[in-house]
């Protein structure tokens, strides 16, 4: 039995320890905002925070997470009021939207380490794939979110 805290709620999970966190979140706990994209930590659609760090949940087995604190897109705010979410809305970023939970969670963690990001910082650290090609607005939204967080 593994105990994890997801968005402030304790969950006891009884499942094979090699099961990736992604499928525990989606299929066992029922939080479907975190998406399956590639299964090999290439695309970032499944990005969540594990103990405050952005991680690709498709490649983290539940067995190593006993006692961990997990934050998913559903727990970021109750009313889409996180500055990164506001910036995403203001810049009209999402198209199909499937990758955007991961993009947002990656950005939230990134801005903690880079509160004044340059484009080079963004290029080096936000590596999630967006197949719709929203990068133009996504980049603007990251800068806008950084500004909102300082305001």
């Amino acid at each position: 039995m593994i105990t994890i805290d997801v968005n402030g709620t304790q969950h006891q999970v009884d499942i094979e320890p090699d099961t990736p966190l992604l499928w525990v979140l989606r299929d066992v706990i029922g939080l479907t905002g975190t998406k399956f994209g590639c299964g090999i930590a290439e695309c970032g659609a499944c990005t969540v925070h594990i103990n405050g760090r952005a991680m690709r949940s498709c490649s983290v087995p539940i067995g190593v997470l006993d006692g961990a604190t997990i934050l998913t897109i559903e727990g970021l705010s109750s009313d889409a009021s996180h500055p990164v979410q506001k910036a995403w809305v203001a810049e009209d970023v999402p198209q199909c939207g499937y990758c955007q939970s991961g993009q947002i969670m990656a950005t939230v963690a990134f801005l903690k380490d880079f509160p004044n990001p340059t484009d080079a910082d963004i290029n080096a650290n936000i590596t999630n794939i967006c197949r719709c090609g929203t990068y133009e607005r996504l980049r603007r939204a990251i800068h806008r979110a950084a500004d909102l967080m300082k305001a």
Binding site: F36, I73, E74, Q85, W88, V89, D92, G97
Partner: peptide, 27 residues
């Protein structure tokens, strides 16, 4: 006009086919 679906796509609320969950559903 801003896209009407954007607010659903910044908080995990937008439902894609892969997010469907039915009682007694198997995989």
């Amino acid at each position: 006009q801003p896209r009407v679906d954007v607010p659903l796509k910044v908080n995990g609320a937008a439902q894609y086919a892969i997010d469907t969950r039915l009682p007694d559903m198997v995989y």
